[in-house]
Simulated scan of single mutants.
Amino acid sequence: MMGNIKLRKAAIIGTGHVGSHVAFSLATQGEVDELWMVDIDKQKAIAQATDVNDAVSYLPHEVTARACEPEDIGGCDILVISAGPLPRPDQDRLDTLGDTVAVLKEFLPRVKASGFGGFIISISNPADVVAAYVQRYLDYPARKIISSGTALDSARLQRLVAGLCRVSRRSLTCYALGEHGGSAMVPWSHVRVQGIALDQLQKDLPQRFPAFDREKVTQDMKHGGYLVLEGKGSTEFGIASAVTEIVRAIFHDEKKALPVSCLLQGEYGQRQVFASVPALLGKDGVEEILELRMTPAEQAQFQASCDRIREYMALSQKM
C-alpha cells in the first residue's frame, strides 16, 4: 500500500527584492515543492511567481509558484515574512519599526484567519522586534517562530575574519549575537579555526595568524548591510541564502546550530526578549538554545544589546 507523499510548501509575504530572492533561492536549491507568494501589489506577486515558473525547466526539480492572498496559506509548512520598508542608508533598522508595524497590522489578521500553523521565519526589519511583535500578536508557540537575526551578520563576520586569517570560512566558527542591528556583539572568546581558539592561534602562531583590530572588524560587519544598500538599493543574495539555510535545517531535521533570533526564557540571564543566539534547528523548530560561556565584558555587551531590543519591543506594543 503506497503512502501519501508530502509536498514541502513555503509561503512568502512581501515579494520585493528580498522576498523574491528568497523564493528563487528556495527553488534553485531544491528546498521547496510549492511557493505561495503574497504581496500588497498583486501584479508584482503574479509576476514574481510567473518568473519562478518560467525557470523551472532549468531547476533541479519541479517547483510550482503561485500568487495568493494571506488567507490561502493555511496549508503551508513555513511562512517567510519579508514585508515592510527597507531602511535608507541614513536610517537605523529600528527607525523602520512604525512603517513595518503598519504593514503587519494589514496582513497578520488574515494570516490568523488562514489557520496557518507552520513555522514562521521573520526577516522584516527591525528583525528581533518584528519577530516579537508577530509572536505576541498571533500568540504563537515560541519554538515555531524565529527571525533570521544575525545569521547574515555572522556570514559577514566570517567573510571578514576568513580574509584576515587566510583560511576558508567553512573552517571558522564565529557568530554575531544579540540584535540584528547597531548593538550586535561578537563573542571573540568563542571564535575557532577548526576547533582551535583564535586567541590561542594568534598567541602560538602570530606570523600565520596575526592580531587585528577586532573592534574595527565588528564595526565593518555592522556596516556590511549598508555598504550593499548604498551600492544597489537592497540586500538580496546574502539574506536569501541565510533563510534557505534555516529552512533546510527545519525541513531536513538537521539539528544544525545557527545564530538566529528566538525567544529567550532564562537563557543567558534574559527573559521575554527575542535576540540572536546559537540555536539547534530541526523538525520541531528551535529545539535547543546553546549557551556560550562568555567573558564578563561579552556578557555585558550582550545584556546591552538585549536591553536595546526590549526598549523597542515596548515601543511596538504602543503602536
Rank of each mutant, 00 (worst) to 15 (best):
S124T: 13
T150E: 08
I123M: 08
A155M: 15
D139H: 00
A127Y: 04
A151M: 12
S148T: 14
Y137I: 06
P126T: 08
D153N: 15
R143C: 10
Y140V: 11
N125W: 02
A155N: 11
A132L: 07
S148Y: 01
T150C: 15
A132F: 13
D139S: 07
I145N: 06
S154M: 11
I123F: 03
P126W: 04
P141G: 00
I146Q: 02
G149T: 05
I145R: 04
V134K: 04
S124I: 12
P141K: 01
V134G: 01
Q135F: 02
K144E: 13
A132D: 15
S154W: 09
S122F: 05
A151Y: 12
A142M: 06
D139G: 10
I145T: 04
Q135R: 15
A132M: 08
A151E: 14
S124K: 00
P126A: 08
T150Y: 04
S148G: 14
I146F: 03
Y137L: 05
K144C: 11
A155T: 00
L138E: 08
D139R: 00
A132I: 03
R136V: 06
I145V: 14
V129S: 04
I146S: 03
I123G: 01
R136T: 14
I146G: 02
V130Q: 08
P141H: 02
P126H: 07
S122A: 13
S148F: 03
Y133K: 15
A127R: 07
V130S: 07
L152P: 02
S147L: 06
R143H: 13
N125H: 06
D139F: 00
A127G: 12
L138A: 07
N125D: 09
I145G: 00
S147D: 07
S148K: 00
P141W: 05
D153M: 13
R136Q: 15
S154Q: 09
I145E: 02
S124E: 10
N125R: 05
V134C: 12
K144W: 11
I145H: 01
P126L: 09
Y140T: 11
S147C: 15
I145Q: 02
A127N: 12
S147Q: 05
S124N: 11
S122H: 00
Y140W: 09
V134D: 03
A151V: 14
T150L: 10
K144G: 03
I146A: 08
A142S: 09
